[in-house]
């Protein structure tokens, strides 16, 4: 796992182009430039295999395959994968399901810089 921010690989999975664009900008400002994108859960699973990201940000409500389904599949083949659920639907049910399947953390949408920075700081400190 990369411990240097500049070498970290991040996968953003969200069906919204606007959210992906925003996340890319915020991650870039944090110093992360090796960024990959997926627009649904199935694409995320495929992209995860291809690039082995250090962190994956995963939306929940998406077409083709939901974020929770993608989380399950990725964790089944890569138990150490760090997957952060990024969603506006942070209900108790969704959160407990995501935790059950091995989500690392949760990011409430709309994503705010301060919240993301705190999460990344913790991640790189631990790594």
């Amino acid at each position: 796992m990369a411990t240097e921010i500049s070498k970290a690989k991040v996968l953003i999975c969200d069906d919204s182009m606007m959210v992906r664009k925003l996340m890319k900008r915020l991650l870039g400002e944090y110093g992360i430039t090796d960024i990959y994108e997926a627009s649904n859960g199935q694409e995320a699973v495929e992209k995860f295999v291809d690039v082995s990201p250090d962190i994956t940000f995963m939306d929940i409500v998406m077409p083709v395959m939901t974020g929770v389904e993608a989380l399950k599949l990725i964790k089944a083949s890569a138990p150490d994968a760090k997957i952060v659920m990024a969603t506006s639907v942070g209900t108790e049910g969704n959160l407990s399901e995501a935790i059950k399947y091995g989500a690392t953390d949760f990011l409430q949408k709309p994503v705010e810089e301060e919240q993301l920075t705190k999460l990344l700081d913790n991640f790189f400190k631990e790594a």
């Binding site: 409500v61 506006s88 639907v89 942070g90 209900t91 108790e92 949408k109 709309p110």
Partner: peptide
């Protein structure tokens, strides 16, 4: 999606009922 997600959270918190969303 953001509005409906926050609505679902609110309903979940106030009534304990879980609502889902489609894409």
């Amino acid at each position: 999606n953001l509005n409906n997600g926050l609505y679902n959270v609110n309903i979940s918190n106030s009534t304990g009922k879980e609502l889902g969303l489609t894409p």
